[in-house]
Simulated assay, not measured.
Amino acid sequence: MTKAKVGIVGGAGYTAGELIRILLNHPQAEIGWVHSQSQGGKPVTTVHQDLLGEIELAFTAELDWSVIDILFLCSGHGASQAFLQENTVPDSIRIVDLSQDFRLADPSHNYVYGLPELNKNQIKETSWVANPGCFATCIQLGILPLAHAGLLSDDVHIHAITGSTGAGQKPTATSHFSWRNNNISVYKAFRHQHLREINQSLLSLQPNYSAKLNFLPVRGNFTRGIFASLYTAVSIKLEEAQELYRQFYEDSPFVFVAETHPHLKQVVNTNKGIIYLEQHDDTLLIISMIDNLLKGASGQAVQNMNLMMGWDETAGLRLKSSMF
């Protein structure tokens, strides 16, 4: 069987490294080239050292459109839009953008917001997907079923903690080991950029929703994963909410409604989203968890590729969590 060829732009970062790891074992896709201006000519394993013995490719500074069918854009926010303005990508090539550049609907582009649990049919029909943000994915998985049922009527309070890989591979003052280890801090309280795409999705399901999303993002002292706790007032009983969530996700192969209190290691190194519900008087507590680099980035990007190409949605993504 001839495999589809993939090109990766921004190949030296964390999300590109995760993409390479997945694609090396994908049954229907293979890597054509990995582009990096800063690393051109060097072996991929000089950056992604865990791939020693797995890949012999070198980074390229050239863009050969003739050898690829699918393009992943893994550069920083703002860089994808600039890249596409500077380079003419043939219309025959499908694009999955992992930046925030095209996540908000706008007449200036035709990208579909790539949350499969929300827009699966649209993703199947498009050639351009804007991969959601990691916090946005985790939070939306927690509350979209309520919006779909028209049950969001009050503020939603969100506390979500993320691993250090969410800050990207380039060292910063708040991501290096000496600062991050044994430490925790809040940042961008109530104004995180992912709120815009979350609100966009909620309004697509429940146009009359006008309450607030009170979001406290937290930097965690671990490397990967997002653990979000959300709560809001609801008018239904716990058993009804659980059934509502199960029905909403019945055709979503990576989202699971847990019956017992979950923990983060259940999703780390997987493309899973795990949801858990508890009721306290008229308040519904929702726990939502994902791996920020997989379901929150590269795993979801491959999931979107699978849908765009008409393949099994789970292809290459049956990944096992690391419990110990």
Rank of each mutant, 00 (worst) to 15 (best):
E197Y: 10
N208E: 08
S210H: 10
A105N: 09
V89F: 00
D106L: 06
H157A: 11
Q169H: 13
C138V: 14
I161L: 10
V156N: 01
A167C: 06
S99T: 15
V186H: 04
A149F: 00
F227V: 01
S204C: 10
F102L: 06
V156E: 07
S99P: 04
V218P: 01
I161K: 13
P132I: 00
Q193H: 02
Q140V: 03
G142W: 00
H157S: 13
R103T: 04
L152F: 09
V156R: 06
G166L: 09
C134N: 04
P217I: 04
W128D: 03
P116W: 13
Q100G: 08
F102E: 01
A105R: 09
W179T: 12
F135S: 04
K212E: 14
S175W: 06
A211D: 11
T165M: 15
F190W: 08
R224Q: 12
F177T: 07
W179H: 13
A189T: 07
G150A: 05
T137A: 09
T126V: 02
S178A: 14
T88G: 07
P116G: 12
G225S: 14
K188W: 02
Q100S: 12
A105V: 09
V156S: 02
R180T: 00
D101T: 04
T165K: 11
G168L: 06
H176M: 10
G163L: 07
Q200P: 10
G220T: 01
T126P: 04
L141T: 03
I184W: 10
P107D: 12
S127Q: 10
T162A: 14
S127K: 14
L152N: 07
L141S: 01
Y187R: 00
I161S: 13
N181R: 14
D91I: 08
H194Y: 00
C134K: 05
F102D: 02
